[in-house]
Every structure is written in C-alpha cells, then in structure tokens.
Amino acid sequence: MNVLSKILKKMTRTDIVLVVLIVVLSLAGIIFPLLHTSEEHDELQLVIEQGGEEILRQEHPYQESGVQKIEFSWESEEYVARLEHDGSRVRLKRLEKDVVPLPIHVDMGWIEEPGEMIVALPVQMVVELEGDTGERELDGVSGTYN
C-alpha cells in the first residue's frame, strides 16, 4: 500500500484523470463489442452446392438435432454426405476417403452465422449459411459484400 500512496503523491490530478480515462476506455472497448455480438438473424437458409449447382436449400435452424443424409454424385458414382445439426449449428461429417482424401472439411467444424461455409474438395461441395447479416460491408480481402 505504501508504494501506491507514493505513486499517487507524485501524480498530478491531470495524470490521475488520464489514467482513469484510459482504464475506462479500455474496459469499454472490451465490453461494448460483447454486448452487440448477439444479434438475431432473420430467415437463415442452409444451402449446399456441388460443382456450382444447388443440391439443397432449407430453412435454418433445422427442425431437429441429429444427422441429415444428403445424396450427391461425383464422377458418375452416388455418395451420401452426412450433415449434423445441433440447434443452430451445423457441420459436415467425414466424407468417404476415396472421394475426399483429406478431411479438411471436418476440420472446419461447426458453422452458425450467415456467410460461414464449409468446403469439401475435390468434390466441389460447399455448405453455407445464407441470410440477412444486418449491415452490408464490403469485404476488403475478397472484394464482395458479406
């Protein structure tokens, strides 16, 4: 406590006001974004495309949790993709190794926000959540609107 009182004695009122202001602004910078990240999204759609063609479009979140089977074809063969639903989250389960050798799509994990997607290559499958994201901002990396 002696150290704190010595420091306070050396500080002027302006120094104390400045320190308090910096602490308050720092805390506001942490708390304010947390309060505004829980925005609700209207009319979310789960869209699955393969080779640029839409093979499924449905309302999201899906009515029940569990696994939904999606049939698709690749190089004249029929396969089944398993889409796991858990409330408002969705993920693509491991596709067969002879179709997709590397499980990168599994590593992408769960998606639950508009604009998030899962990509499975080389079968060119894209699982995406589409919907209103509120403000439309230009993405500086891809040059598209979110």
Results as ranks from 00 to 15, higher is better:
Ser5Phe: 12
Lys6Met: 09
Ile7Gly: 00
Lys9Gln: 15
Lys10Cys: 00
Arg13Met: 06
Thr14Ser: 04
Ile16Tyr: 00
Leu18Lys: 03
Ile22Gln: 05
Val24Ala: 15
Ser26Ile: 01
Ala28Val: 13
Ala28Asp: 06
Gly29Tyr: 02
Phe32Ile: 14
Leu35Trp: 08
Thr37Ile: 11
Ser38Arg: 13
Glu40Asp: 09
Glu40Leu: 02
Asp42Val: 12
Asp42Glu: 15
Leu44Pro: 08
Gln45Phe: 02
Leu46Tyr: 02
Val47Tyr: 02
Ile48Val: 15
Ile55Phe: 10
Leu56Asn: 04
Gln58Cys: 07
Glu59Arg: 09
His60Met: 13
His60Arg: 01
Gln63Met: 04
Glu64Trp: 03
Glu64Tyr: 08
Gln68Arg: 14
Lys69Arg: 13
Ile70Ala: 05
Glu71His: 11
Trp74Leu: 10
Trp74Arg: 05
Glu75Arg: 15
Glu75Val: 11
Tyr79Lys: 00
Val80Pro: 00
Val80Thr: 15
Leu83Pro: 00
Leu83Ala: 06
Asp86Ala: 10
Asp86Met: 05
Gly87Ala: 01
Gly87Leu: 03
Ser88Asn: 15
Val90Met: 02
Arg91Met: 09
Leu92Tyr: 08
Lys93Leu: 15
Lys93Trp: 02
Arg94His: 10
Arg94Met: 06
Glu96Ala: 14
Lys97Arg: 15
Asp98Gly: 01
Val100Trp: 07
Leu102Trp: 07
Val106Gln: 08
Asp107Ala: 13
Met108Phe: 14
Gly109Leu: 04
Trp110Gln: 11
Ile111Arg: 02
Glu112Tyr: 07
Glu116His: 01
Met117Val: 00
Val119Thr: 10
Val119Cys: 04
Pro122Gly: 10
Met125Phe: 13
Val127Tyr: 03
Val127Arg: 02
Glu128Val: 15
Leu129Asn: 07
Glu135Thr: 06
Glu135Val: 06
Glu137Leu: 15
Leu138Gln: 07
Leu138Tyr: 06
Asp139Tyr: 03
Val141Gln: 12
Val141Asp: 14
Gly143Val: 02
Thr144Ala: 11
Thr144Tyr: 09
